[in-house]
Amino acid sequence: MHAQGGPADELALGHADGLAGGFEAHRDRLRAVAHRMLGSFSEAEDAVQEAWLRLARGGTDDVENLGGWLTTVVSRICLDMLRSRASRREELTGHQVPDENRDPDGSGDPEQEALLVESVGRALLVVLDRLGPAERVAFVLHDMFAVPFDEIAPIVDRSPATTKKLASRARHKVRSATPALPGGELARQRRVVEAFLTASRNGDIDGVLAVLAPDVVRRADRSAVPPDRPAEIRGARAVAEEIASFGRNSRFAEPALVGGAVGIVVAPQGRLRLALAVTVVGERITAYELIADLARLHRLDLAVLDDVTAA
Rank of each mutant, 00 (worst) to 15 (best):
G5L: 00
E10I: 00
D17F: 02
L30I: 12
V33K: 06
A34W: 07
H35R: 15
G39A: 06
S40T: 04
S40D: 08
A44I: 03
A47S: 06
Q49A: 12
E50D: 15
L53H: 11
A56G: 07
D61S: 15
L66S: 10
G67P: 09
V74A: 05
S75N: 06
I77P: 04
D80T: 09
L82S: 07
E91G: 01
E91I: 09
G94L: 05
E100Q: 03
N101G: 10
D105P: 02
S107Q: 06
P110T: 07
Q112G: 03
L115F: 12
V117K: 10
E118R: 12
R122G: 10
R122D: 09
L125I: 06
R130P: 08
A134R: 13
E135C: 05
V137Q: 10
D143C: 05
V147W: 04
P148S: 11
S159A: 11
K164F: 12
A167H: 14
A170I: 14
V174N: 02
R175F: 08
G183W: 02
A187C: 03
R191T: 01
E194R: 09
A195W: 05
S200G: 03
N202R: 15
L212R: 00
A213D: 15
R218D: 03
R218K: 09
D228V: 08
R229Y: 03
G235I: 00
V239T: 02
A244K: 07
A244C: 02
N249A: 14
N249P: 00
F252E: 07
L257R: 11
A267Q: 08
R273D: 11
V281Y: 07
Y288P: 11
E289I: 03
I291K: 00
D293A: 11
D293L: 01
R296I: 01
D301Y: 07
T309Q: 07
A311L: 15
